[in-house]
Simulated scan of single mutants.
Amino acid sequence: MVKIGDIELGDFPILLAPMEDVSDPPFRKVCKKYGADLMYTEFISSEGLIRDAIKSRAKLDIFDYERPIGIQIFGGDEEAMAMATEIVDATGPDLVDINFGCPVKKVVCKGAGAAVLKDIPLMERLTKAVVKSTKLPVTVKTRLGWDESSKNIEKVAERLQDVGIKALTIHGRTRVQMYKGEADWTLIARVKENPRIHIPVFGNGDIDSPQKALEYKNRYGVDGIMIGRAAIGYPFIFREVKHYIATGELLPQPTIEERVDACLQHLEFSLSWKGPKLGLIEMRSHYSNYFKGIPNFKPLKVRLLTSNSQDEVLEILNEIRQLEFV
């Protein structure tokens, strides 16, 4: 049984990655339905929370059916991280996660996210500030290092565990790699094999099929895996991975009916949570993934992406439901 503090996650949990502009409550709802064991919010700026920025505050929305759920924060200032943690704590998540892995320039330029990989003592201080500001379990998501010459994750893992984190998720790339090239899980395995490390270690990067999930589980010995991009428009990946690990058998591909139902649930919650206008607009980035591989989908896709009418979108989804898809 894998545990983060007192949170029980099963024998080999499958986690949903925190993804900016993706991992909002509507998206998390469908991922939970199809089997995600632990989910995280989009990352939230510690400075934004302290300033009471509307966008940052909206990301604190969590719902009981999502549990266990972690709220992820980022920042480069100890005091701001401590204050943000107290704000997060008050909203009642199951854990607090620190982002030390985001490679995006606008985050790194502020000395946050993956930028902290260049300053391990700062990483320790920031983590300590968060741990001291909450009774909730604190976890960290990070990368192998800043670049090829500074893959320091083994040292980082020990130091962060010593500071008090309860689990560590490692993306198998450096910051310089961004999302290019193949994720290297060998260092993730070395962290897991380190006799000093007793907290759960989760691997992240390139898991896009049940077969790869099982292969990486067996080869690298991690306690669980985190799935990000492969879940966008395809929440079915969670149930497929779990079934394959349990039985060695691949589930059949989701039917067109299931795809439409999942998309519809996502859309309906998006409309209710964000409002009819924004909810409709922000769903546009998901349609291509929900209906990937459907023959002659392009004309329907164009209509979905240009429609400003909820009724029209529902009508188009009903048309898709009637299509034959093998």
Rank of each mutant, 00 (worst) to 15 (best):
T306N: 09
I120P: 05
E324N: 12
S309P: 15
E282C: 09
N308S: 09
P26C: 13
G279E: 06
G113D: 06
A17Y: 02
P13V: 14
F27C: 10
Y244S: 11
I98G: 01
A246L: 11
S309F: 15
E124A: 11
P25E: 03
P210L: 03
I153V: 10
L136A: 06
T255S: 12
S307Q: 03
D206A: 03
G35Q: 09
G145Q: 00
V108Y: 02
P254S: 15
V241F: 04
K166M: 07
A213F: 02
I256R: 13
E258W: 09
N204V: 05
P195G: 07
Y287H: 09
F43A: 12
T134K: 04
Q211P: 08
I237L: 06
F27A: 09
I14N: 02
I245N: 08
P26S: 12
M81G: 02
G248E: 08
V104H: 06
H286Q: 11
V2F: 04
D64E: 12
E158D: 12
P26N: 11
L60T: 05
E193F: 10
D97S: 11
G275S: 08
F291Q: 02
K301R: 15
T169W: 00
V30H: 03
R196P: 05
A246W: 04
L305N: 12
N194M: 07
W146H: 02
P18K: 03
A183K: 07
T41C: 13
V116F: 00
V222I: 14
F12N: 14
Y40A: 07
L267Y: 14
I256G: 03
V241K: 08
P210T: 01
R284P: 01
E66N: 10
A90T: 04
K55S: 15
F74G: 01
I281V: 14
F269C: 13
I232Q: 11
R51Y: 09
K274D: 02
I7T: 05
H286R: 13
K274G: 04
T247D: 02
S133P: 03
I207W: 00
K298M: 10
P200D: 06
F74A: 01
G35E: 03
M1I: 13
A84Q: 03
F325V: 02
S209F: 04
D206G: 04
G203P: 01
S285Y: 12
E249V: 07
L317M: 13
M1W: 08
F74Q: 00
Q72A: 09
S272N: 14
A157I: 04
L300T: 03
F63Q: 14
L117A: 08
L323S: 02
Q322P: 12
V176T: 10
A90H: 09
D6N: 15
K217F: 05
A84C: 06
P13A: 13
S272V: 15
G248P: 05
G48H: 01
E79T: 15
G101A: 07
K180D: 12
D52T: 07
G228V: 05
L136C: 04
A58T: 05
F325H: 11
Y40P: 00
I225A: 08
Q310Y: 13
Q253D: 06
V140K: 03
P121A: 06
R57P: 12
P13D: 11
D77S: 06
M39T: 14
V260L: 14
A84L: 02
Y65K: 15
L9A: 06
L250M: 05
L251G: 03
T85K: 08
E258Y: 13
L168G: 06
K33H: 10
K135E: 09
V241W: 01
P254M: 15
N194D: 11
L278K: 15
I50E: 04
P26I: 14
G172N: 04
